[in-house]
Amino acid sequence: MKFGIVTFPGSNCDHDAYTVAKDVLGEQAEYIWHVTTDLESFDCIILPGGFSYGDYLRPGAIANFSPIMKAVREYSDRGGLILGVCNGFQILLESGLLPGALVRNKKMRFLGRSVYLRIEDNSTAFTNRYKHHQIINLPIAHGDGDYYNFSQNIQTLEKSGQVIFRYCTRDGELSPSANPNGSIGSIAGIVNRAGNVLGMMPHPERAAEALLGSADGLALFESIQAHIGNHKLRKTAS
């Protein structure tokens, strides 16, 4: 399969994502400059973390107006897999591909540390290699990660099972102290209704090799690999 990693001016996790896709998973990977408009050849698009356009206006706001985002929206409409991490999540929210907004961390600080997360749904294209309610350890690095949405929209998200990751304690309990940025419902990652677009604040690409302190993020990329593999098998069979 082939991963496409979008590089905006100011992206800085594109190399991490590329390394995981290419060297750790052994799949094809390619950087895509933000003015590209053809995404036909890719099986999964990654919007990486960083500070696209210096976070000017709002994090992710200007990136949303770059030429590639029209193609990303069409790619999503066709059911293509899109993973947005950190600034990539912010871009997905600005573009309306995912609902809600990310606002300044509740305690104002930029947070760079590792957190525990609970897998809320292991049936998605992005989490099928995890166990239900598995606790994983991933790094976060953000100043604007407090997930916000209107209360009726939060209810909709919860009811339709779109919350995929929640911040939790080492034992998997939800508590304000285990919620680093003040996100409503301890939300750390959500999918769209169709399940082909995932946005998350923690960085799985920075934790995909034991050498880096945690390999808990690897299963997310393996999930995508398995999902695409199955999809292609089915296509060949039919």
Binding site: V103, R104, N105, K106, M108, D146, Y148, G182
Partner: peptide
Amino acid sequence: NLKEGTLDPQGET
């Protein structure tokens, strides 16, 4: 400006 009801940690600080 932020809508009423949206938390403003900067303003609070």
